[in-house]
Design a protein around this nucleic acid. Structure first.
Lengths: 186, 186
DNA sequence: TGGGTCATGTAACCTGTTACATGATTAG
DNA sequence: CTAATCATGTAACAGGTTACATGACCCA
């Protein structure tokens, strides 16, 4: 029940097509919420039926025609209700298959496991890099960020990314160390 | 595609009923993978059809009858394939609604947001507490952990919990600090 | 007599993934 | 000429959530 609200949130920045939403998604929310294009279009369909957004067909000559979505008043109040009405408990939705994979590590091949941990570490390093780019883009105001108060919430999102990626790297290192020690003992 | 493998992994500890699986789940995997009872029963059904587990009906007098599941050789090789054949990339499945909620923080009520962050902090503190209990249980070998090498993988799982919960708390504190500063400025 | 544990599920629904399909314009 | 960008989706399937349903035994 969050992709709908993610879309509504992005539409408060201004009317957008599904395609534009997808692009903005990949520059911001994708750091903490993944979504396929197909899903975005489907969700746009359902929230239009709910009356949370309205759409307008725009015919273009040089480019394919498009459908621009605007958030309605119902959509705005739905978004505010979601923002204010959701307890943190509901947000603790753990689904971490890397840890599950480790948890059953004794069954699989240890070399493969180490390789996966190193890959995991590497992915998180890249993630940190891409966060740097977002941060720099934010400083230059390349993003469509209106007020400074809004900027602060972007900063919090970026901080989140930094802290979790660093935690992931720390964990991977500890696991690798433990695995290497174990090898020495046996 | 991981609950099935979580169940297979737990069944390597020995044959179990759906009910027992649910309980073991809540003492171990629930720290990084959530699942409902109904889902466990459904997945048991489908993995039995796939031939990954076999079941036996046991008639009891004092208690309701039960259905005990045993992992098959096909199930074991499926589990090993899953463990060894999954790249870390596929495991980066971000879905963090707390951060999404923060991201659109400028739209909602700031007092509510602060309250949620404090609740979030609190939940993570409780999480740390419950991890301590798991750790102590592990030391006393109350859990059905066979070998010391297996114990190591439990320790890695617990470490994961500690590191992420601490990261969550750190983040919540930073956000609260930023929000308090902002209030002062405006 | 009421709540907890044991033990099983079904049905409807919602959310996410994968694969596919189309087709024009524009920049190198 | 070819790849990227713009722009839309559908269909099938897999995975997760919520609500409901049943029923016996045991302990306080």
């Amino acid at each position: 029940m969050s992709l709908k609200h993610g879309i509504l949130g992005l539409l408060t920045y201004g009317p957008m097509t599904g395609y534009e939403l997808m692009k903005v998604f990949n520059k911001s929310l994708k750091f903490f919420w993944s979504a396929q294009t197909s899903q975005i279009y489907r969700e746009l369909d359902t929230i239009e039926k709910k009356g949370w957004v309205t759409s307008e067909h725009i015919i273009q000559k040089d480019k394919p025609n498009k459908k621009v979505f605007t958030i309605s008043n119902e959509g705005k109040s739905e978004l505010v209700n979601w923002l204010n009405g959701h307890s943190a408990k509901k947000m603790m939705n753990l689904r971490d298959s890397m840890t599950m994979r480790i948890f059953f590590g004794s069954i699989g091949d240890m070399k493969v496991l180490k390789g996966e941990l190193m890959e995991y570490r590497c992915i998180n390093e890249h993630f940190l890099e891409s966060l740097k780019n977002v941060e720099e883009g934010l400083d230059k105001s390349e993003q469509s960020i209106r007020e400074s108060s809004e900027k602060l919430y972007w900063i919090m999102g970026i901080k989140r990314g930094y802290i979790t990626a660093k935690a992931n790297i720390e964990w991977a290192d500890e696991c690798l160390e433990l695995l290497n020690k174990m090898k020495g003992e046996q």
